[in-house]
Nucleic acid binder design. Structure first.
Lengths: 122, 122
DNA sequence: CAGTATCCTACACGATACTG
DNA sequence: CAGTATCGTGTAGGATACTG
């Protein structure tokens, strides 16, 4: 069905490597995946449930990217039904530390930010 | 020219506040602006030059968002030609610390990431 | 369960032109 | 200089259906 594989090339691939990686780890779902996996290894659907509101497509895409970047390890057990576990590599532990710190800072300080006013009505 | 003001509403405004703010500070240009301003106050065009390849529209939009969030302070001197200085608030200093740490981690470790191979050819 | 394939839309972002 | 206004494009991301 596909002689040519259209693999959703990224615009940012012209940027310097570190910016690209930075964009991966700070991406909408990448950030949340790293934080979730920081606690413990998780299966695909567990990850989906924890992150919440992420489509299968996006989670899959995000995990592949993070795997390529060397942050996530994917272990597939060859059983039926399939069982796949995602975990952080040592590099993944490294970034997730900072990602988590950033996220925690925001959560901790959100109350004191003027932004909170705008949405505190609900 | 505009009875109704279309102010580019954000999809994410349905998310919890901290996620929204997190997205602001980790956004493509937000992240870079925070890092640049961490060193010293900067004018609009200085900021543009330092960040590089950011359009006026995006930088302006980014700065407004960060200002609303309480991370950036905008000081306008009423002279001609205009002189505007952007600087970090104390909250801005707070997040930028973590943002910078994250960015630094990536830059430091980029060489040891498998990703580097993919683009090291140029 | 753990994904892929396909289709579609909204919006992020850039380019250009204009203004105080 | 420091923006705003407007328009055009690509792509991030969702919905749905299907598969090993």
């Amino acid at each position: 069905m596909s002689i040519e594989k259209k693999i959703e090339p990224n615009v940012m691939d012209k940027m310097c490597p570190s910016r690209v990686v930075l964009n991966h780890v700070t991406s909408r779902w990448g950030l949340l995946a790293l934080i979730a996996l920081k606690e413990q290894p998780l299966r695909f659907s567990e990850l989906r449930r924890i992150i919440g509101n992420v489509s299968e497509k996006m989670l899959s895409q995000t995990l592949k990217t993070l795997e390529k970047d060397g942050f996530v390890h994917r272990q597939s057990f060859d059983v039926m039904p399939p069982h796949v576990e995602y975990s952080l590599t040592s590099h993944g532990q490294g970034v997730s530390l900072h990602v988590k710190a950033l996220a925690t800072w925001v959560e901790t300080n959100i109350e004191s930010l003027p932004f909170a006013d705008a949405t505190s009505a609900q």
